[in-house]
Design a protein around this nucleic acid. Structure first.
Lengths: 226, 226
DNA sequence: TGGTTTCTGTGCATTATGGGACATTCTGGA
DNA sequence: TCCAGAATGTCCCATAATGCACAGAAACCA
């Protein structure tokens, strides 16, 4: 689903450098664990860059059900949707850990990209975003929850994990409830599937309770139950 | 869910003009109804512009289930995901009617945008795309199929419809099966909901069997069952 | 115009899912 | 070190969704 995107990594690197020049202009801000960076509907035309920590993006349905859209970690950019010209935030951004951020007003961000000839890189980055979301949508539409959970784990492993020959460790604790909010099912359901994956040796919990994903095995299993 | 985006329309207008200069370089190509413009996995680094007709974008799951991602009509751009730098198409593009297209190699497209100072507009356009898809994902995750069908109809009405004071006519025939492939449910289920919406006066079928959506009523109904 | 195919409306078994509930284990804070 | 709150592992059951089947209507093709 999500592949390795060297171009995207390159782009993030470039943005980081580009924003360095901005350091004095925009000081780093500190967000405490469980606090919000911004909330739905809020007028906040800023683009954020994560120095350290983790941030999750959530949408709420009318009945208050949550949908976890993405988890971002150090080096990521988020909040860039204010560039769409739409008024008000569509989602809420919450720190999962104490987090250090840089923020730049969205017009400034565009100007900066433009000046540093990064617009094409940003277009590429956004195109990758659209492609990823497209894959997520297709998954939600076509496959059942076990399969979706599996693919989501693979995606998280590739996005956040550290690779070893046979496995990938996700250095970030994500609760079953958060997973259920990503794949559109209930928490108990995720528990059952996670247990199953563990019994089959597709995933493991490390000493420190980090999640370890055996990408090959999990991929093979998902294909076998398809 | 999907709002009116004057900026996006403006951008499409500008792209159209920008591509006019390209007319001789890239002749219009004709795609017969039910034929594919490109298919999954195909190497086809082109950006398309629709002169007339309709095109739908489909993804296929491993078991062959379809997911309808988008419907594009005259004036729209599609296939722009090749800008992500990923190899091979992620989806299949199929003409729903006889369709006339212009195509431009993706690097040429970028060059052209750059030359005509449309890169920022394109960034905005992509940001809107991401925002829209985000809304689609949140819907798939948080609400049930009736609600999703309703929202999808509203979205289609706003995207494809012609407005009257109280209603919007969608000048394009979309089968229940296609709808079911957009919202992630089965065809019979869509039939039942459509019937219900019709009985409640939320939608109508015109003489020529076009779908007419009473946006206000439908919106109110969806809110009432939330 | 007739015949064929696709689309729609419906019903019904079977299965999957959602929404609780509850005991147990973990974790972080005092 | 102990306690309170959070997260996890399991059940159950009412409900929603899937898969299938079939008849009627409409659209398409020749």
């Amino acid at each position: 689903m999500i592949q390795d995107y060297p171009e995207t990594d390159l782009f993030k690197q470039q943005v980081r450098e580009s924003l360095q020049g901005q350091v004095k202009a925009s000081r780093a801000i500190k967000i405490a664990k469980h606090s919000n960076v911004y909330t739905v509907g809020e007028q906040d035309e800023m683009v954020y860059f994560i120095e350290s920590g983790q941030v999750k993006l959530l949408m709420l349905s009318s009945e208050g059900k949550e949908c976890l859209l993405a988890i971002h970690t150090a080096g990521d950019v988020f909040g860039e949707l204010c560039l769409s010209g739409l008024e008000g935030r569509l989602e809420t951004a919450t720190a999962m850990e104490d987090t250090l951020l840089k923020k730049v007003p969205c017009e400034k961000f565009l100007e900066r990209l433009s000046r540093d000839s990064l617009l094409e890189g940003f277009v590429k980055y956004l195109a990758v975003r659209v492609a990823d979301q497209q894959a997520v949508i297709a998954n939600l539409v076509t496959v059942d929850s076990e399969q979706r959970l599996g693919k989501t784990l693979l995606q998280l492993a590739r996005q956040l994990g550290k690779k070893s020959p046979r496995s990938t460790r996700i250095g970030l604790k994500i609760s079953h409830e958060e997973l259920s909010n990503m794949i559109g099912t209930t928490r108990p359901r995720v528990s059952v599937f996670m247990q199953r994956f563990r019994n089959l040796g597709l995933i493991e919990l490390s000493e420190e309770h980090y999640l370890v994903v055996m990408e090959d095995k999990l991929t093979a299993y998902l294909a076998s139950i398809a």
